[in-house]
Design a protein around this nucleic acid. Sequence first.
DNA 1: AATGAATGAGAATTCATTCAT
DNA 2: CATGAATGAATTCTCATTCAT
Lengths: 200, 200, 200, 200
Amino acid sequence: MITTKVKDPDLVRKKQHQIFRGAMKVCRVKGFHNATIREIAKASGMSLGNIYDYIEKKEDILFLIHKEVLDQIYARMEKIIEKHEDSKDQFNIMFKELFSLTMTLKEEMLFIYTETKSLPKEYLHEVLKKESDFVNRYAKVIENSVRRGAFQCEKPELFANIVTFMSAILPLRGWNILQRNTPDEVCKVLLDMASNYLNQ
Amino acid sequence: MITTKVKDPDLVRKKQHQIFRGAMKVCRVKGFHNATIREIAKASGMSLGNIYDYIEKKEDILFLIHKEVLDQIYARMEKIIEKHEDSKDQFNIMFKELFSLTMTLKEEMLFIYTETKSLPKEYLHEVLKKESDFVNRYAKVIENSVRRGAFQCEKPELFANIVTFMSAILPLRGWNILQRNTPDEVCKVLLDMASNYLNQ
Amino acid sequence: MITTKVKDPDLVRKKQHQIFRGAMKVCRVKGFHNATIREIAKASGMSLGNIYDYIEKKEDILFLIHKEVLDQIYARMEKIIEKHEDSKDQFNIMFKELFSLTMTLKEEMLFIYTETKSLPKEYLHEVLKKESDFVNRYAKVIENSVRRGAFQCEKPELFANIVTFMSAILPLRGWNILQRNTPDEVCKVLLDMASNYLNQ
Amino acid sequence: MITTKVKDPDLVRKKQHQIFRGAMKVCRVKGFHNATIREIAKASGMSLGNIYDYIEKKEDILFLIHKEVLDQIYARMEKIIEKHEDSKDQFNIMFKELFSLTMTLKEEMLFIYTETKSLPKEYLHEVLKKESDFVNRYAKVIENSVRRGAFQCEKPELFANIVTFMSAILPLRGWNILQRNTPDEVCKVLLDMASNYLNQ
DNA sequence: AATGAATGAGAATTCATTCAT
DNA sequence: CATGAATGAATTCTCATTCAT
C-alpha cells in the first residue's frame, strides 16, 4: 500500500514495525501533529533518510500506526473470542477481557479515536475496513449466541458497534470517570447494561 | 483567562466570539492543526494582526472553541433539563433530546473529543471542570429521580458519565454505524440499554 | 500570473523587481539550480519568508527573471527601432545596436537561452509569446524595408529569427570566439552575411 | 581523467558508456539537474553503488555526456568532411549534412549548449578543447578551399565558428522557427547567407 | 484598535554519497 | 566487482508571531 524504496518485503515489514514503535513512543507523549520526523527517526533508531526508504510522507506513519494498532487489537480479540466461543457466559467474559484490553492499550485506543480523521483519504478505506471487520467478528459471536437461544438481540451488528464503543470509554473519558470510580466499577456497570439488554 | 491587548471586556467578548465562529468554520473542514491563523482570520472577518489583540497564541483559539462549544452544549442541555425536570419519563425524553443534540452539534462534539488532548495544560483544568459540571448536572437529575423512587441507580455520577459518553456515539462512530442503521434505531437501542439498567 | 499573498500591486511589482535583481546577482554566478532561496533572499535584501509573500515556489523566480529580462531587451530594442526606423541604412545600424545590446546583457541572454527549458509549463506560453513578439517586431521592420524596395527578403519572419539568433552568438560562444577575435570583427562578419543576403 | 575504483580500462570504458546512455535517456526528459543518480542507475541497468565504481561524483556524468556527445558529433562530422573534402561544392554539401546532423542530435546539441556552464572547472578545459578542435577542423576545410581559390574568406576560423553556431539554430530556437517554417527552408536561408558571404 | 507586511525558526523531504555484505 | 540499504547535510517552503504604520 505504501510505496517503498526498499523492495525486500521482510525488511520492509521489519523496518515499518520499527518505525511504528518509535512513532508510538513519541506520539503517545505529544500527539502525531507535534511529533517531528526527526524525533520519530531517533526514537525508531533509524536515520532520517532511512525512514523515507520505508514511507513516502509523514502521514504514511499515521497509517502505519493505525494498521499495527488495529491488527494488534484484532489479534488479541481473536484470541479472546476463540478461548471463550463455546463457554456459557461467553459474552460476559469476552466483554470483561475486551474492556481490560482497551485499558492496556489505552494510548493506542485514544490515538485511533482522535487521529483517524487526519488519515489521508487514500488510506481511510483500508482502515475503516479493518474496524468494520473487527465489529463484524464481534457481531458474529453475538448472532451465534442468539441463534443458540442464549439471549435476545435484534440488531447484533448495531449492538456490537455500541459495545465496542462502550468498552473504549476509559481511554476517552478516563480522566473524568477514574477520579471517583475504579475501572472494575465502570466495567461492572457497562456489563450490566449490556447483559440486561441481551436478557431483557 | 486569555490575556488580551484590548481591555474593553465587551469588545473582547464580541471579538473572541467572532474568532470562535471563524475558527470553527475552518477547523470543521481541516482540523485545528491544519488550519492556519491566516485562514481563521479571514473566516472571522478580522485582520491577522487584530486577531492577536484578542489572543496570545494559536492554542488560545483551541481553548476558545472548547469554551464556547461546551457552554453552548451546557446551555442547551440546561434548557432541556429545565423543561423536563418534573415530567414522569423525564429520563427518556432527556436522553432523546441529548442524543439529538449531539447529532446537531456533531462536528463540535467530534472536535471536543479529538482536540482536547492538544489543549495547553493551563487551560485543561478549566475545560475539564466544565465537562465535569455538565456531567454533574446530569447526575443530579438522576439522583433526584432515584430519591423520588422513580428508578434505581447506585452510582448516578458514573452512570451520567456513561450515558453522556454513549450519546456521543454518532459523532465518533457514525461513519460505521450509520451505514446500516438510522439515528433513531441507534437512539432506541441506547435508550433501552440505559432505562433497562435504571429499572432493573 | 504569480499568485501573491500581498495584494497591493505596486508593492508586488516593486518587491518582485527586487527579487529579480537579487536572483540575477546570484544566478549569474552559480546558475539558477545551484542558487538557494536563502541566497536569493539575502541578495534581494529581503527575509526568507517575505520572498514567499511574492512568489509561490522557487520556479516562479525563474519566470520573474524571464519576464524582466525579456521586457528589458524588448524595451531597449523598441527604442533602437524607433530611433532608426526611417534612416536609410536602418538595418545595419539596428543590427549593430542589437548586437551590442546582447553583449551588454551577456549574462541575461545566456540565462534565457540556457534556463528556459526549466520553466514550468504554465509559464512557458507567456514567455514564448514575449519572444515571438520580439521577433515579430523585428520582422515588421524588415518587411517595411522590403516594401519600400530597400532590399529583398522572401521570409522576413524567418530572417528576423535567424538574425536574432545570430546576434546572440557572443553570449553563447564568446568563450571560444573571443579568444581570437574582437567583438567588432564578429559583428562585421555577421552583418556582412546578413546584408549581403538582403541585397543579393 | 575521471578517477575510478575499477581499474580494467576496457570495463571502465564500457560501463561509462553504459552510464552515458542511461543518463542521456533520463536527462533528455528532465534535464541534468532534475535527474537523480538513482534514475540514471536504473536507466543504465546498473546498481546505485556500481555507478560509483566508475565515477566519483554526479558532475562526472555531466562530463561523460559532454565527452561522448562531442566525440559522436566530431566523428560523424569527420566522416562527412572526408566524404566531401574534394568535391566542388564541398561547402554546401557539408553545411547541409551538418545542419541535418544537429537536427538528428537535437537533444544532445541542446544539452551541450545549456549544460556546459554547469561543468566543473576541472573538466571545462577538456571540453572546450574538444569544441575548438571541432571548429578548427571545419576552419581547415574552408582555408583549403580559399587557398584553392574556390571562394573568399578572410577569417576562416571565425567564419567556421559562426557557421557552426548557425547550424545549431533549430535545437535552440526550433520551438519558435518551426511553427512557420520547415527545416529545409531554414537550411536554405542559412546556406544562402553563408555561401553568399563566401562568394561575395 | 486595526491592518497586513515582515520575520525567521522549524518542518518535511530529497538525494548524493558511503559502506557493509 | 556488484548490490542496495543507510546516512545526514542541504533545501524548499510554511506559518505563528511581531511590529511599523
